[in-house]
Design a protein around this nucleic acid. Structure first.
Lengths: 232, 232
DNA sequence: ATTGTCAGATTGTTCAACAGCCAGTACGTT
DNA sequence: AACGTACTGGCTGTTGAACAATCTGACAAT
């Protein structure tokens, strides 16, 4: 094979192009229902029921549930079944401890911070502001998650991004509890803007510190919410 | 039920006490074989073969393989099968990007740094020194991984620890390539000691910076190794 | 109230089957 | 020799049925 041909071929990124396997379909369908709040925390997920509802066999559903359990979106207890995860205040502490490690560090040192990345962050902030003006709570949550997803992308590690992805899904379970508080999201959307402004000014350490404070305050605010499932 | 009895019972932490399920057994058996290097990167894992070898059905094996794939220890390609993961230089870069985010941040700000934690870190260093004196490569790797596992524990987040756990397992796949280089491990064990010394002196920022430098150097050293599987 | 017992429901696990896909092999074309 | 085609064996993806183990709730017995 000629040298130039080989080199030209390396530039093709061959798309995965495989249609999702059955287990993947079930997995993402359930995942979607959970993060969208249609399957509330505590809901029992019965294999047979899901299987016949979605048109897949029990074994396939089992595989999907096992993966969701690895993601912590559902909890499996042997011989007792699977339920949509119900987060405890301990989980909230754990999630925010993780985010305080990852997000400030990504801002401070992550190798992914370039012009395009800054624009992406700015865009997420703008989307959030639009949603806030329209009092669109779903939109605010999505924009906020987009912002933090892109922050974690600055880490330059797909493994870190994947963890953040999972944790953001878990956060939807948390916000299930917070639907009452109408001021929660707007307050924190504003602070996203401040963080981006610091980055744009070239002050990465400042942005990292602002993120740390943000996460601290958000955790306190969430933990002060009335009801947490703390029967562990 | 009497009041005092109820109160006494709350103090029992009821151990999980469930013996591992079949899929879990297969999963951990395979995991062990992989991290111990008995199943080398690239080895094909055929469901039927594993099943009959370990005495479990194909379905059970499938569940175990799905979980290992989620952990990235094996790679599953649809209709093509499962092989023990072969890491590319891109994977090494990704892993170290993740570690540079997590480990320095855990040292700098993690809430888990107390006297007991410091002792644990010091112990890991001592174990490493002992292994180095005995030229015990396996022991050095284990001690080093214990050290970094305990650093990640400073994060105060089980989710971060879990990610680190998975990544350390992946690192075993990396070291499969590095068995040639006899000086790799002793060099870096020494630097673990310096990091602990900084912590003991109360200089968390300094320890974080030292960790950052450590991880940078380790990555460079690994990437300079002759052969990486970079056919992606 | 506490405990023993039993039936129903659901999970854990196996087995057997079949379609679909992949890699390799052989064969014929150009 | 390079290429296209057809065939084949091996494995994966997925299903459906089956059975034992175990949990849950209800009801009866103490």
């Amino acid at each position: 094979m000629s040298r130039s041909l080989r080199e030209a071929l390396t530039r093709i990124d061959v798309a995965p192009l495989r249609r999702p396997t059955a287990a993947e379909s079930v997995r993402s369908a359930l995942r979607q229902q959970i993060v969208d709040g249609h399957l509330r925390p505590g809901t029992r997920l019965v294999e047979e029921t899901i299987g016949s509802a979605l048109g897949f066999s029990r074994n396939t559903v089992r595989e999907a549930l096992a993966l969701l359990a690895a993601e912590r979106l559902v909890v499996r207890e042997t011989h007792r079944g699977v339920v949509v995860a119900t987060l405890s205040s301990e989980d909230v502490r754990d999630l925010y401890a993780a985010r305080r490690v990852i997000e400030p560090a990504a801002l401070r040192r992550g190798p992914g911070l370039d012009v395009a990345a800054l624009e992406g962050l700015r865009e997420a902030v703008t989307l959030g502001q639009d949603a806030a003006r329209g009092e669109d709570v779903q939109g605010m949550v999505s924009a906020n998650q987009l912002f933090h997803r892109r922050v974690s992308a600055l880490s330059g590690s797909s493994r870190v991004q994947e963890l953040m992805e999972d944790m953001l899904a878990e956060m939807r379970l948390v916000f299930d509890v917070m639907t009452a508080d109408r001021t929660f999201h707007p307050d924190f959307l504003h602070r996203n803007g401040q963080i981006v402004a610091l980055l744009e000014a070239g002050d990465r350490d400042g942005a990292a510190e602002a993120m740390l404070a943000y996460l601290h305050d958000a955790e306190v605010r969430l933990l002060s919410a009335p009801v947490w499932d703390d029967r562990d």
